[in-house]
């Protein structure tokens, strides 16, 4: 041994330092690599649950139908069948969770309807679009029922519009 180390003590000491360094590294890995790392792949398995645990903000139309039977029922038979409740009424998981906590505001039909129905050349041509300048004035919902829209407006207010036009 002594013979082997002759004139090389410093090299063996340096090698020893490297070994110590390597052991420290291996030890640190054993301690600091997070739990569940590599269970499914090269990531922390707990990250899946972290992503899942995010709170809901939109309740989803099924939750709405749970309490509000009538409007969703009417909607289903109408041209707006595909429109989810929260598409117009906003995110309402808080309300679905506890109706007392949040009372949803009625959407402003003057602006809301135009979000979808304002004419725009980029919209698919088959989609119902209006240009406010060549459409009777007024709030959309005076003539159209958003939960059961129809091409022809509701009859009652129509004469008013016509008289105004005269």
């Amino acid at each position: 041994m002594r013979h082997l180390m002759k004139n090389k003590v410093h090299l063996f000491r340096m090698a020893g330092l490297f070994v110590v360094g390597f052991l420290v590294f291996a030890g640190a890995r054993a301690v600091f690599v997070p739990e569940g790392f590599g269970v499914y792949g090269h990531y922390r398995a707990g990250a899946l649950e972290d992503n899942r645990a995010f709170p809901l903000v939109h309740a989803g139309r099924a939750a709405c139908a749970g309490c509000h039977g009538d409007e969703p029922e009417a909607l289903k038979a109408s041209r707006h069948a595909k429109v989810g409740c929260e598409a117009c009424h906003g995110a309402l998981a808080v309300h679905a969770d506890d109706p007392a906590k949040l009372t949803p505001k009625k959407p402003d039909a003057k602006t809301l309807c135009l979000v979808c129905h304002m004419a725009n050349v980029a919209k698919p041509s088959g989609f119902k679009q209006i240009s406010p300048e060549d459409h009777p004035e007024g709030v959309c919902t005076e003539c159209h029922d958003p939960h059961s829209p129809a091409d022809a407006p509701k009859p009652a207010p129509a004469p008013v519009q016509k008289e105004a036009a005269k």
Binding site: R52, A53, G60, R61, K82
Partner: peptide, 23 residues
């Protein structure tokens, strides 16, 4: 985007799909 992982893993659709009026 996470495909709303917190929603789709609970039987709900994503927020964008939920509110898309034309599917």
């Amino acid at each position: 985007c996470s495909f709303c992982y917190h929603r789709i893993t609970k039987g709900l659709t994503t927020a964008c799909c939920e509110t898309c009026p034309t599917e």
